[in-house]
Design a protein around this nucleic acid. Structure first.
Length: 501
RNA sequence: GUGGCUAUCGUCUAAUGGUAAGACAACGGUUUGUGGUACCGUGAACGAGGGUCCGAUUCCCUCUAGCCACCCCA
């Protein structure tokens, strides 16, 4: 096994870390003569652009997951999980050659069975494949699907930009009416709002049909050609590769030129224009704050008509895309299914979490143990496992440190964890079926029979809750703002929910 | 894919061409079955490979990774 690890490592780059010398030293100590595997070179490093999401970060993810899950249920989306690997051809077909994803960002490889496959770089193509494959077209419309999972793009990593990132997607199949567009955008708003994100901007645009876009592109190129000498070097190249992108250029001189360029909205076909107009009416009716950005072009080719993007702007004025989406009315048909209008959007969860941290949005507060179980002596140790189970069954979260020998060291841990009650069972208690219940705040303790243990512990916890608030978190001071209040309510709600179970 | 900056215990930081220092965290102790503080102790790092040198963590090169700017995107 280790051999193969070695051969798979990049030839000239043995960025290897030997099994830690310390580990060897430790096991070499006379007392602990544990046989150690021969030292092998192991690449102890996550792949570039891949990362571990450690326990400390999980509360942020948990909060996002919960909010997504609520939104999913309340808006009637059903969850679907798709494979992370598909035939590479699926993406070639849907995304189109010439897009960056296809040309340089997709993880493509051959399997042992010689299938040409790709790690999914986006969710929509697989979704449409599944939609067709399982004949979902026969379901009552609209068909609303929610999915969440990893996407892979072979990019050059930076903060908020990874080779594996997590995205949540909401998609609706089977309805063409712009009211669906509005509802989908409303859902996106709702999620962002529930997350408590500020400084978020919604941009919408319509890019019409492929035909109308081609017309527009012609006009645009003609205009830009006439100004070519004044464009920046980059844009001169873009003129042939991807002229629409020039509208996004940040160079002063290019902005000047593009301000007077023909606008895509003026070249929409009549139906698309109508569609867009009605969408805007719905958005206004919902009183959703949005901006029309006629320069908004999304990176994927399959979009038609409505496109939108969720952006955040930081203090330095840099803006990040947190998610986006749009209509893809032709995609299902393109893949060989029945003509099926569809719209959806994706949220980049890694970036959303970065944004939460940046703007100091509170993560999910994990339930914290309020009771510690300490044991002393072999007999008590044996009994403690059972007590642990009993308490847990009664809804009491317990911490322990069974591996420690002395009572002192266990109490030290209990204290550091901030528990309110410590249950102590020693040799004597194990023999006569009692246990000591110690109130960690007052320091007082009493001996009770083991079958009264749950009640005794709960009594103390209850008295503390009146003073402390849920989860042992002190109640906010009187001068807290509304957001804190909301947070408190949410916590209480969750606690009640938890208690019920 | 292009260019730039960076890399020291688990974390944050020092210093140095000649034994790598501290803080936080961890673990243990300050005599018997009770927490805090204080004090004491233990373990723990120069990303990898090569070169120059008597000697490299330090200088040079390559690789790897992270970050930044492009490209692009979530």
């Amino acid at each position: 096994m280790a051999k193969s690890t070695k051969t798979e490592a990049p030839k000239k780059s043995p960025a290897v870390k030997k099994a830690k010398a310390s580990a060897v030293k430790r096991s070499a100590k006379p007392a602990a003569a544990i046989p150690v595997a021969p030292q092998e070179e192991v690449l102890l490093q996550a792949l570039r652009g891949m990362r571990d999401i450690l326990p400390d970060e999980q509360p942020y993810w948990e909060r996002v997951r919960r909010i997504l899950s609520h939104a999913q249920i309340e808006y009637g989306y059903r969850r679907i999980d798709l494979p992370m690997v598909e035939y590479a051809h699926l993406y070639l077909r849907t995304l189109g050659e010439g897009t960056d994803i296809i040309d340089k960002e997709m993880y493509v490889f051959n399997t042992r069975g010689n299938d040409r496959v790709a790690l999914r770089p986006e969710m929509t193509a697989g979704l449409c494949r599944a939609y067709i494959e399982h004949g979902m077209g026969v379901l009552p419309k609209p068909i609303k699907l929610f999915s969440m999972g990893s996407l892979f793009r072979y990019d050059r990593p930076q903060e908020g930009r990874y080779r594996e990132h997590t995205q949540a997607n909401f998609d609706v199949f089977g309805e063409e009416d712009p009211i669906l567009d509005a509802q989908v955008i409303q859902l996106a708003f709702r999620v962002v709002r529930d997350l408590g994100l500020k400084n978020i901007e919604f941009q919408v645009n319509s890019i019409g049909t492929p035909e109308s876009r081609r017309d527009y592109e012609k006009v645009l190129v003609r205009y830009l050609e006439s100004q070519k000498h004044r464009l920046c070097q980059n844009c001169k190249e873009r003129l042939t590769t991807n002229p629409m992108r020039i509208l996004d250029c940040k160079e002063e001189k290019c902005i000047q030129i593009t301000t007077h360029a023909p606008q895509s909205l003026d070249y929409l076909d009549q139906e698309s224009r109508d569609h867009f107009k009605r969408l805007l009416e719905y958005l206004d009716e919902l009183e959703l704050p949005y901006m029309i950005n006629t320069r908004l072009v999304r990176g994927l080719d399959y979009y038609t008509r409505t496109v939108f993007e969720i952006r955040s702007t930081d203090k330095e004025g840099r803006s990040y895309s947190l998610g986006g989406g749009g209509r893809y009315d032709r995609l299902v048909q393109m893949l060989g299914g029945e003509p099926t209008p569809a719209i959806g959007f994706g949220l980049g969860l890694d970036r959303i979490i970065l944004e939460m941290k940046r703007t100091q949005v509170k993560p999910y507060v994990e339930p914290k143990p309020r009771v510690f179980l300490a044991q002393l002596g072999d007999m008590a140790k044996k009994k403690s496992l059972r007590l642990f189970a009993d308490l847990e069954k009664n809804g009491i979260l317990i911490a322990e440190s069974f591996g420690r020998g002395t009572l002192k060291s266990q109490l030290r841990v209990a204290n550091r964890l901030g528990v309110e009650v410590t249950i102590i069972i020693g040799q004597k208690e194990a023999l006569d079926g009692t246990a000591i219940v110690k109130d960690m705040v007052s320091g007082t303790q009493e001996t009770v029979m083991q079958d009264k243990l749950v009640d005794a512990a709960k009594k103390i916890l209850k008295a503390n809750t009146a003073l402390m608030g849920p989860n042992g978190i002190p109640l906010p001071k009187p001068s807290e703002d509304d957001e804190e209040e909301e947070e408190k309510e949410r916590l209480e709600k969750e606690k009640r929910h938890h208690d019920k179970r």
